[in-house]
Simulated assay, not measured.
Amino acid sequence: MPIQRKNILIIEDDDKIRKLMKIFLEKEGFEVIEAADGKEGQDLFILHDPCFVILDLMLPYVNGEELCSWIRGKQNSQVGIIMVTAKSSEEEKITGLKIGADDYITKPFSPSELVMRVETVLRRTNNHCKKMSIGGLTIKPEKGEVTYKGEMIDLTAFEFLILYYLMVNHGQVISRDQLLDYLYKAQEKVVTERTIDVHVRHLRKKLHLLALDHYIQTVRGMGYKFVIE
């Protein structure tokens, strides 16, 4: 199971269009999350914290304009957004851009054009995608944040760095010496082997409260590793 992959949330109530977009985006290596209405889109946005959102304008329950404003406002997100609509008037396009969309595409459109537009916007918003996610656990190195299903996990600087280093090297056994060297370079503070064990123990306790401690395993006599099941 990949831990680093750019994930796109498609919020589109037309099943055929949504499935077509999914097929072409997955061919380009994206992980695609699907929502068939605005309310489901909100829930999945909170759960997955996507790199990108493709958003239909006319949606059940919560329309595209409301959803775009919610993402930009309440979530304070830098995520890339492309609005999709059957309406082609200049006024509609201006409205979409004013409320925070990065681009606008009108139905019908070719899937290859959509992929091109996604990649163009991603080049401008790529910092939001420099994160790792697995099972709802997301770490954002550029912000120093760790969340689980959208909720912040309060970690110390050392706990954050240990989790990040283990996740980056998932599946590999990381020795205490490697962690010591990494933490010293990152913090320029002296850390001992015993301190490493204390920080890992505290990190596990915090993950245990969320039933996530199984990700970090001890390899006796060698060190630790982050395991994706």
Score class of each variant (00 low, 15 high):
Lys19Asp: 13
Arg176Asp: 02
Ser112Pro: 00
Val121Gly: 02
Asn63Lys: 07
Arg117Cys: 09
Asn76Ser: 11
Leu44Ala: 07
Cys51Pro: 03
Glu12Leu: 11
Asp13Ile: 05
Met132Gln: 07
Tyr182Pro: 01
Val53Asn: 08
Lys149Tyr: 14
Val168Gln: 07
Arg72Trp: 08
Met1Ala: 08
Glu31Thr: 06
Lys131Asn: 08
Leu137Cys: 03
Ala101Phe: 01
Val190Asn: 02
Ile162Asp: 00
Cys51Leu: 11
His202Asp: 11
Ser110Asp: 08
Tyr182Cys: 03
Glu92Asp: 15
Val32Pro: 05
Phe226Pro: 04
Asn127Cys: 07
Leu207Ile: 09
Arg123Gly: 10
Asp15Trp: 03
Lys74Val: 10
His128Trp: 14
Lys140Val: 12
Tyr164Glu: 08
Lys205Ile: 08
Asp103Pro: 07
Val227Arg: 04
Ile216Ser: 06
Tyr148Gly: 06
His208Glu: 14
Thr125Ile: 10
Arg204Met: 15
Met116Phe: 11
Leu59Val: 09
His48Lys: 14
Glu34Tyr: 11
Gly150Cys: 09
Met1Lys: 10
Ser133Tyr: 07
Leu180Thr: 02
Ile228Lys: 05
Met116Pro: 00
Leu20Asp: 11
Phe45Trp: 10
Pro60Gly: 13
Lys22Arg: 15
Glu92Gln: 10
Ile94Met: 06
Glu90Trp: 01
